[in-house]
Design a binder for these strands. Structure first.
Lengths: 207, 207
DNA sequence: AGTCACCTACCGTCCGTTAGGTAGGCGAAT
DNA sequence: ATTCGCCTACCTAACGGACGGTAGGTGACT
C-alpha cells in the first residue's frame, strides 16, 4: 500500500534499476575487486534478491564488464574534453589539464572508474574484448598527447614515448591505492605530477 | 644407516616443503591475486593434499602474509644494497640504480614481489600489522633518497616529496601490469624512468 | 616410542546460476 | 467496461560445486 509507481515513472525518478545495480556494483567492485564482490552483496545493497539481478544481466561478468567500460569511457571523455578545451595552449598546460581530468574523473565519478582499475587486475582469465578495445582507445589519447609533448620538446625527444606513457598512467592509476579525498587536493596533485615529468626550468630555457 | 635424509638435510637440498609451498603460492598469487588463489590450487601445484598445507601453516592468510612480507623485504634489501653500492655517486645515478634495483627485484625474484603487490591491491583482508610495518620501512628508504635528490637540487626543492614518492612508486609497481620479460629491458627502463623525473637539464653532459 | 610429514574423509558455508512462480500494469478484444 | 493475455520486475527455492578448515589415521624415520 505504498505509493507504488509504474516502471517508467520510477525509472525517470531514480534512474532505473539497471543503473542502480551498476552504481552499487561499481562501489563494491572498487572496494573489493572482482572476486571479493559477490552477487549477494550487490543484490542486498540494491535491496532486491540476488536472483533478480539475472533479470537485468545475464551473468556476473556482464555486470562487471558494463561497470568497467563505463568507467574507462568516462575518464576518456573527461580527458578528451580537457584537451579540446585547452587546444592551442602550451603543451605543458595541456599535460597538466589532462592529468587533472584523469584524476578528477578517477576519483570524482561515482566509483565507476576506480572500480575499473581494481577489476582489471582480476586473473578472471579472459579480459573481455569490449574492455580491451575501450582501454586501447583511451591509451591512444595519451599516445597522441605524448607525441605532441615531444614534438614541442617539452619532453626530450630521445625519451621512449611508450615508457613514458606506461610510467605516467601507472602512476596516475596507482593513486587509487593512496588517494583519499581529504588528504590531497587534485589540482595541486595534477600540478605536481605535471611538473615532475615536464619541469618548467631546464631545456626550454637553455635551448 | 641409509642415505641420510633428515628434515634438516632435505630442507637444505630441496629448500624444504615450506619454501616450496611459499614459492608456489607466490607464483599463483602473482597470477591470480588473493581471492582467485585457492589452497587446493596451491596444494595441487606443490603435489600434496590440501589438508597437508595445514601442517606447515595455520591458515591461508598466514601463507599470504609470509609471501607478501618476503616480497617486500626482498625489494627493500635490493634497493638498500644498490644505494650502498652507489654511495657518494651523483644523486641522479643513485636514483637510477635504486629504480633499477626495484624493478629487477620486482620482476626477477621468483614471483614473490609481484605477488605482494597483487595481493595488496584487493582489499582482501584487514592488511596484517606485520605487512604494514614492512611496507612502511620500505617507503622510508625512498623518502630518504628523495630528500637527498632535493637537497642536491636534482629535483626542484619546491616539489612535494610525498607526491613524488607516491607517483614514482605507483609507476614502478604499476609495471606488474604491463611488464613482460621479452618486451622490455630493465636497465633501459630504469634509465628512462630516472631520466623522466630527473632529466639532465641545464648543462649538457656526456653520456 | 615418538615425531614428522603426509594422507583420507568430511564439515558447514558461500558461490554463481537456474527453475519456476506471482503481483500488477498494459493494450487489445470482447 | 470488463475481460483476456502478455509483459515487466521482482520473488522463493534449490542446484552443483568450490571454498577454507578440521579430525583423525598411517607409514617412514629417529
Amino acid at each position: 500500500m505504498s505509493i507504488q509507481t509504474t516502471k517508467a515513472e520510477r525509472d525517470a525518478v531514480e534512474g532505473g534499476s539497471r543503473r542502480l545495480i551498476l552504481d552499487t556494483a561499481a562501489r563494491l567492485l572498487r572496494q573489493g575487486g572482482y572476486h571479493q564482490t559477490t552477487l549477494r552483496e550487490i543484490a542486498e545493497a540494491v535491496g532486491i534478491r540476488k536472483a533478480s539481478l539475472y533479470y537485468h544481466f545475464a551473468s556476473k561478468e556482464e555486470i562487471v564488464e558494463a561497470v568497467v567500460n563505463d568507467g574507462v569511457r568516462f575518464v576518456q571523455e573527461a580527458v578528451v574534453a580537457a584537451l579540446q578545451a585547452s587546444e592551442g595552449a602550451e603543451p605543458r598546460v595541456r599535460l597538466e589539464s589532462a592529468i587533472h581530468a584523469h584524476l578528477t574523473a578517477l576519483h570524482g565519478h561515482g566509483d565507476y572508474t576506480s572500480a575499473s582499475i581494481k577489476a582489471f587486475a582480476f586473473g578472471a582469465m579472459p579480459v573481455p574484448d569490449s574492455v580491451r578495445r575501450v582501454r586501447r582507445a583511451y591509451e591512444d589519447v595519451w599516445r597522441l598527447l605524448i607525441a605532441e609533448l615531444q614534438a614541442a620538446d617539452v619532453i626530450a625527444i630521445e625519451r621512449s614515448p611508450e615508457a613514458l606513457r606506461l610510467f605516467l598512467l601507472g602512476a596516475l592509476n596507482g593513486s587509487t591505492d593512496w588517494y583519499r579525498p581529504g588528504r590531497f587536493d587534485i589540482p595541486a596533485l595534477a600540478r605536481e605530477f605535471a611538473a615532475l615529468i615536464a619541469p618548467r626550468a631546464g631545456r626550454a630555457m637553455s635551448d
